[in-house]
Nucleic acid binder design. Structure first.
Lengths: 115, 115
DNA sequence: ACCAGTAGTTAGCGTCGCTGGGTAGCGAGG
DNA sequence: CCTCGCTACCCAGCGACGCTAACTACTGGT
């Protein structure tokens, strides 16, 4: 029945990851661990990898393979120009949605538009 | 490619509709029109009907068939107790998500958790 | 030799919103 | 009378997304 948060993450998780990459480059395992630390403890391991593949295919990130001393090579992702555009677009859309919803939440949204 | 907003609506649209029904009972066509008025102009007609069927099946709303002078009978939906619980849960989850994302947005979320 | 931790990949699933069509009832116009 | 347009609802099929549950591969410790 996928809980609320799972459904809400659809569409926002990509923005979240892009926002993380906007700060600095990172690899999948790192991002997953970091999200867990930050309260996004509910995000599944595999989800991030799939998402990273997607954003790579769309050309929002550049990738570099970096050897690790502790395991298989890491795929380090960096946000590029197109990715920064996408992130900006994400924040715009996010603002629109949150604005409308907050309006709906507090404001006595009387349906009676006439007045 | 479903634009951002479409993806973001997943999981939130249900809450939006429940919030509308919390103010007063309404039928599908009415809700659709009202959403269009309120800037949610991008929401597809059929989407609302499918959503209403879903929330009915989950027992969040009660339904009453009311004849219309201008067309086929309306199905008027009212939020019931279970629906109010669900709506409260929705707001809780929504708050959690927005809090985390706003934190990510402004706050210089240095990954360097160490020092 | 074995296991735990690191790091990434894949196939298949369920949910959601969208698309595009259809049905039904009523009133106005040709 | 027949069609058009508005009201009002329903349905099948689609793509995108996140989740589940596996698997591969490399390193270091016991």
């Amino acid at each position: 029945m996928g809980n609320q948060l799972t459904e809400m993450l659809k569409g926002t998780l990509e923005g979240i990851v892009l926002a993380i990459l906007a700060r600095r480059s990172a690899y999948g395992y790192e991002i997953t661990a970091w999200l867990r630390d930050r309260g996004f403890s509910d995000i599944a391991e595999g989800t991030i990898y799939a998402l990273l593949v997607r954003v790579e295919q769309r050309g929002f990130v550049d990738v570099e393979k970096v050897p690790s001393e502790k395991g298989p090579p890491r795929k380090v992702y960096s946000l590029n120009a197109k990715g920064r555009d996408q992130l900006a677009e994400f924040w715009r859309t996010w603002s629109v949605l949150t604005d409308r919803i907050e309006q709906l939440r507090h404001n006595g949204n009387q349906h009676e538009k006439g007045a």
